[in-house]
Simulated scan of single mutants.
Amino acid sequence: MPASRSQSRARGDLEQQVFAALAAGGGAMTTADVRDALGGELAYTTVMTVLARMASKGLATRRRVGRSYAYTAVVDSAEVAAHQLHKLLDARGDRAAVLTRFARGLSPEESQLLVDLLAAEDQ
């Protein structure tokens, strides 16, 4: 039995397509808006699941609109990375261990930048 079109897509490919449609929308879009922008062939629940996962990864923000959500693409990669780091810190419990391993992977220049940023926060 041949796989359907939605089953044959790679998960990352579908997420990229949904993200592109969301980013091209220029503002908040509902699941139905995104589905329509993609040609309307995908199941509503498939698009809804992808959008929810994108929101949990920090790739999109969502706000309640009636009984649904409206999503907006997060196009600032630094914001996405910061969101992911915060999620990791929250999930691990031992924040010091996570931060220590992160800091050990920094170059001397990156370490100095981090020190400078932290010092600026204290002022």
Rank of each mutant, 00 (worst) to 15 (best):
A23K: 13
A23R: 15
A24W: 08
A24F: 05
G25Q: 09
G25W: 05
G25A: 05
G25K: 07
G26T: 03
G26F: 05
G26R: 06
G27V: 01
G27A: 14
G27Y: 06
G27K: 10
M29E: 03
M29F: 09
M29S: 10
M29K: 14
M29T: 06
T30C: 11
T30V: 14
T31F: 00
A32W: 10
D33T: 13
D33N: 15
V34W: 04
V34P: 04
R35M: 14
R35V: 10
D36A: 15
D36G: 03
D36P: 00
D36K: 15
D36L: 10
D36C: 09
A37R: 11
A37H: 10
L38M: 13
L38V: 11
G39C: 13
G39I: 11
G39K: 11
G40A: 13
G40D: 08
G40K: 12
E41H: 12
L42D: 15
L42C: 14
L42M: 13
A43C: 02
A43G: 10
A43E: 11
Y44D: 09
Y44P: 05
T45W: 14
T45F: 12
T45C: 12
T45M: 15
T46L: 14
T46Y: 08
T46M: 08
V47C: 07
V47Q: 03
V47T: 04
V47P: 00
M48T: 01
M48I: 01
V50C: 03
V50I: 13
L51D: 00
L51V: 06
L51A: 05
L51S: 02
A52P: 00
A52N: 12
A52Y: 03
R53D: 12
R53W: 03
M54G: 01
M54P: 05
M54N: 07
A55I: 03
A55F: 01
S56E: 08
S56D: 08
K57W: 10
G58M: 01
G58W: 04
L59E: 01
L59Q: 06
A60C: 07
A60K: 07
T61R: 09
T61M: 02
T61Y: 02
R62Q: 12
R63N: 08
R63W: 00
R64S: 05
R64I: 03
V65A: 11
G66W: 00
G66D: 00
R67D: 09
R67A: 12
R67H: 08
R67Q: 10
S68F: 08
S68L: 11
S68T: 00
S68C: 08
Y69F: 13
Y69K: 03
A70N: 05
A70W: 04
Y71S: 05
T72E: 07
T72A: 07
A73K: 08
A73I: 05
V74T: 12
V74E: 10
V74L: 07
V74R: 06
V75N: 08
V75K: 11
D76W: 01
S77V: 09
S77G: 06
S77W: 06
S77A: 14
S77F: 05
A78G: 15
A78E: 15
A78W: 13
A78N: 13
A78F: 14
E79N: 04
V80W: 00
V80E: 06
V80I: 15
V80T: 10
A81I: 04
A81M: 11
